[in-house]
Design a binder for these strands. Structure first.
Lengths: 202, 202
DNA sequence: GTCTATACAAGGATAGAC
DNA sequence: GTCTATCCTTGTATAGAC
């Protein structure tokens, strides 16, 4: 494996274990048996390293969503998609828990506002699609309400999990929050949708 | 005002403006016209300073909840309480946004698990009280579901607000997330409860 | 292109004089 | 209570070996 890849792999491992702020470039270098300066060569700033990891996480998430959009809208399909997303988020917990740092970096890098908007329309499309498919029954501003729920929940379930129930395994945590999400969706589900949800967890 | 108080006031101001990680002890000292060493005298570690600010925030929050418990359970009462809590959280945004740092500190300081449990039973008591008062209609595990919702939402609405809509003023942000909370509660409200909710926002 | 060694700046923390 | 001086760690930059 190339050094660059090794750095990324090892960094993520350390970030997940100790948090971004606690892991210094010297730590990473030591774990790899290379010099700190070598890190600087591959990633001039620690930010660059983090940004690369964030981009990879996002790429996997996007793939999950794309798979969803390539099929027929359904609640089980959506939950399966979110299971993939949650699992991926869990694998990058170190980045997500270091919220502040990550936010600062992304803020400088992207048109953050645009990314946020895209995220929202994304979910709105999904929910309206589920309504059209007869899975959800959405009145007046229910779709926007669900979008608000989804953006907050989808971003912070993992932080909540670590704060509230740090003893859970990855599978347990993902399933727990997937069920909470399903329960929320059930509040807006048609009879058909409720059947879909029940079948998903069997 | 004693130097100790001045330090706390100024620190919070700077933390809110720039984030905990971005504000150094030297910055705080310079803004106060005292030496960095003087800060160390009053707060040996930066952690100690943060911890004191967190404790004060919590004290105000507890006061909000105590006021609620001293009255008759009602949805408007609860929302009013949460408006106070949200407002207080907003005033301490710097601490809450520096999630990682704060969590590390609290983890060492308290029996964190116990605090989390207390928080949950707290909300459960509130929701069961609202059900008993005829405001909410809770079946089987609805109460636990709402508690899960409330702990996550109550902790992360402010982060979500800054990520998602950083342009909002304090009042706008607090009202926005208070309405989202109300909307969630409305999903479990009795006819009486729905009336209560509507009256609250008029 | 890849890596080591090393220097520098900035931040938290401490000791000791006043 | 307050200050100065100093130490240690961490992120960052670069000169130069291979």
């Amino acid at each position: 494996m190339k050094t660059r890849e090794k750095i990324l792999t090892q960094s993520l491992k350390l970030f997940n274990a100790q948090g971004m702020a606690q892991v210094g470039v010297r730590d990473i270098a030591r774990h790899l048996g290379v010099s700190p300066g070598n890190l600087s060569y591959h990633f001039p700033k620690k930010e660059d390293l983090v940004l690369e990891l964030v981009n990879r996480m996002r790429a996997v998430n996007d793939q999950c969503y794309n798979t969803y959009f390539s099929g027929i809208p359904s609640l089980p399909g959506f939950l399966q998609t979110m299971r993939g997303v949650f699992s991926n988020q869990y694998d990058h917990q170190g980045l997500l828990i270091g919220q502040e740092e990550m936010r600062r970096i992304l803020f400088n890098e992207y048109d953050y506002k645009a990314v946020e908007e895209r995220r929202k329309t994304h979910f709105k499309t999904i929910f309206l699609g589920l309504a059209a498919a007869g899975e959800l029954k959405l009145e007046s501003e229910d779709a926007d309400f669900l979008v608000s729920y989804m953006t907050l929940f989808g971003r912070f379930w993992i932080l909540e999990s670590f704060v509230s129930t740090p003893e859970l395994s990855k599978e347990e945590a993902v399933e727990k929050y997937l069920r909470l999400l399903a329960r929320q969706l059930a509040l807006f589900a048609t009879e058909q949708g409720k059947g879909s949800l029940n079948s998903f967890f069997e």
